[in-house]
């Protein structure tokens, strides 16, 4: 029994070549490592810069008047002239966001239920899921154009209700996504246990499945509210903005993002300061909603 040796296949050990190759690989690895750390640091730097700018410049413009007064034209640096606030925009944003959430959430909930409970694997279900996912990332300004053609043109002018409807369309796919995901996580044994007791399917879904998936569904709604609270583009074409407090849904209505947009581009330092205050309010609200939504899910898992 002699073993065959294959000298041709044994690598030639050249210490110098091996060492330099090893050095090159190590250097490349270190280079990549520092690049990744740098990229992450850069991304965090952007976040820090945005938040810091918002807090510093926002607090400068923020005052009690911000929450109690409506829009005022620029003071031209005159200390006697009344400074404006964002009351009209805050109220307008709250109204439109509330209506949009109230309209969009039930529809999104039903679509999510359809996808998770009725249409698993069916062709129509896949089509609905696909379209909902596309709508989730579709340019929001196009939804504004759509509502303009559908509501603003027939009504003859910009209106708060048109703005709320545009936002409602943005709410739907966000709620669909989280509702479906959460319902899919439920174990089938739970469904079988309820149905085995003789409960009809709709009671199984509404009384048991929804309750079990509640934290996830609430998260979806919070994320949807956070998403539409900062939407500007669709409102520009639907509720347009208003410089006085108006709660009339049939007329143009102010909103925080639009007020920020208009005052930030006005060129007057005092109006820009108010825009920064508004930006701080919107961002604080959106980020708090996001963090609360995150905790709602985490405390469960």
């Amino acid at each position: 029994m002699s073993t065959t040796t294959l000298p041709a296949l044994t690598p030639v050990k050249d210490a110098g070549v091996a060492a330099s190759l090893g050095r090159r690989r190590k250097r490349l690895d270190a280079l990549l490592r520092w690049f990744c750390i740098g990229a992450t640091a850069l991304a965090l730097l952007f976040l820090a810069s945005i938040l810091l700018t918002l807090v510093l410049r926002g607090l400068e413009g923020l005052s009690w008047a911000t929450f109690t007064r409506e829009f005022q034209p620029t003071t031209y640096g005159d200390p006697e002239a009344p400074t404006g606030g964002l009351l009209h925009a805050i109220i307008g944003s709250l109204i439109q966001t509330a209506i949009a959430t109230a309209v969009g959430t039930p529809i999104g909930l039903l679509v999510g239920t359809y996808l998770a409970e009725y249409a698993r694997g069916s062709l129509l279900g896949n089509a609905v899921r696909f379209v909902s996912d596309v709508l989730l990332s579709a340019p929001s300004i196009l939804i504004g154009l759509f509502i303009y053609q559908l509501v603003v043109l027939p009504m003859g002018g910009f209106s708060g209700i048109a703005g709320a409807l545009a936002l409602a369309i943005i709410v739907i796919p966000v709620v669909v996504r989280t509702t479906e995901d959460m319902l899919q996580l439920l174990p089938n044994t739970l469904r079988e246990a309820v149905v085995g007791l003789g409960a009809p399917k709709w009671k199984m879904i509404t009384l048991v499945a929804y309750r079990a998936a509640l934290p996830g569904i609430v998260t979806g709604i919070l994320l949807a509210v956070a998403r539409i609270a900062g939407e500007t583009a669709p409102l520009l074409l639907t509720s347009f903005g208003n410089s006085v407090l108006s709660t009339d849904l049939a007329r143009s209505m102010a909103s925080l993002p639009i007020a920020i947009y208009q005052q930030a581009n006005s060129g007057f330092p005092d109006l820009i300061a108010i825009a920064w205050a508004g930006a701080l309010i919107v961002t604080a609200g959106v980020l708090i909603l996001n963090i609360v939504a995150r905790f709602a899910v985490r405390s469960r898992s």
Partner: peptide
């Protein structure tokens, strides 16, 4: 760090515009 990156995605686009 993951949460911070996700918050970057939550900031409204108008804020990116102003910044």
């Amino acid at each position: 760090v993951g949460t911070a990156i996700e918050l970057l995605a939550a900031i409204p686009s108008i804020i990116y515009g102003m910044w």
